[in-house]
């Protein structure tokens, strides 16, 4: 499977990116010169760097992923844009309708990342009081109804969460590709939902990858489906291991870690545990080799987490992705 590299966007970059100028300095920037403008530049960086896509995460502290996706799709030609949201934001009919327009506008480049497990406190702050296993039941209905109105005429559905009568997108909103569905999680509920609905299931490097991929693969096969597998992956790559380590240390100190507690990158796996979750640190060659390792284990999509986003994205495009050119361009 052709490997895909996606950039995870900083939807919560804060207004601090563009500090206000002192009052006596003429500032003709419209209000638009803020965090959204910054995101647009980062999106262009991913496109120009030849990445396969970007992910706008659901972040209660950040900008809305669907609005961000709408702008970034318009500002790009090739890359996919994934918007992460939870099922409480809208009815599945409305989510489908809005997404059909995004598909029309972008030539079918939208992905959905459905966030199912939410911290109950966060969920309630979003007006969403559905909890526990119920969240999976709702996600199931949400995706079923969304696909139903997408693909069928005169669609009807009466479930526990949603009801539709005589539904179904009309031409020309109909007939586009349904957004590629990304899901995540390792619980039994998550696996069962993915077996039925995921086009791409995203794990973390902390997960027991081989076991999880085997489990989901078997479940999905029973439904005659075969999702692709993705990996969230923080990453710091430099010209050599020493430089990578130096910058990892700088990052560690910046995030108020102490010099004495700096976790050394693991030599065998190139994994570093200082990002907050495990990620890769090392020379371009070594990081590329580690990525090849994941490819061999069945992972084909990488949701890279880098910082600062713009600069690191150009770096990846110029130094890391070329080392994987053979895999990217020759895969079947």
């Amino acid at each position: 499977m052709r490997p895909e590299f996606h950039l995870t966007l900083p939807v919560e970059d804060g207004a601090s990116v563009f500090p206000a100028l002192p009052g006596f300095v003429t500032d003709v920037r419209p209000g638009a010169a803020g965090p959204y403008e910054r995101l647009a530049r980062i999106g262009r960086a991913a496109e120009l760097a030849g990445m396969g896509g970007v992910l706008a995460p659901f972040d209660p502290a950040g900008q809305d992923s669907l609005i961000v996706a709408g702008g970034l799709l318009r500002g790009s030609r090739h890359m996919r844009v994934a918007a992460e949201f939870h099922a409480g934001i809208a009815t599945p009919v409305y989510a489908a309708k809005l997404s059909a327009s995004l598909q029309r506008f972008s030539g079918d480049r939208l992905d959905w990342r459905l966030a199912v497990d939410l911290d109950p406190r966060v969920a309630r702050s979003q007006g969403d009081f559905v909890e526990g296993a119920e969240r999976y039941a709702r996600a199931e209905e949400f995706l079923t109804v969304a696909r139903g109105v997408w693909h069928e005429e005169d669609y009807g559905f009466a479930g526990r969460f949603y009801e539709v009568l005589g539904g179904g997108l009309l031409f020309p909103l109909s007939g586009r590709a349904f957004p590629r569905v990304q899901l995540s999680g390792t619980s039994a509920d998550a696996m069962a939902l993915s077996a039925r609905h995921a086009d791409l299931h995203v794990f973390g490097p902390e997960d027991d990858l081989d076991a999880a991929i085997a489990e989901l693969g078997a479940l999905a096969a029973q439904m005659g489906r075969s999702p692709a597998y993705g990996l969230r992956l923080p990453l710091l790559a430099r010209e050599d291991d020493d430089e990578a380590r130096r910058d990892a240390l700088r990052l560690w100190l910046l995030r108020s870690g102490a010099r004495e507690t700096f976790p050394e990158p693991e030599r065998a796996t190139r994994l570093w545990h200082g990002f907050g979750r495990p990620g890769l640190v090392g020379s371009y060659e070594n990081v590329a080799a580690a990525i090849r390792g994941y490819l061999d284990r069945g992972v084909s999509a990488f949701f890279l987490e880098v910082e600062p986003h713009l600069e690191e994205t150009y770096r990846l495009g110029e130094h890391l992705l070329p080392l994987l050119a053979k895999e990217i361009h020759n895969a079947g």
Binding site: Q63, D64, I67, I89, T91
Partner: peptide
């Protein structure tokens, strides 16, 4: 069709995008 919290989030993002 939209939850009001989501409407607030989408609107505020659009306000950022449009000034």
């Amino acid at each position: 069709f939209l939850h009001p919290v989501q409407a607030a989030r989408m609107t505020a993002s659009l306000q950022l995008a449009t000034g």
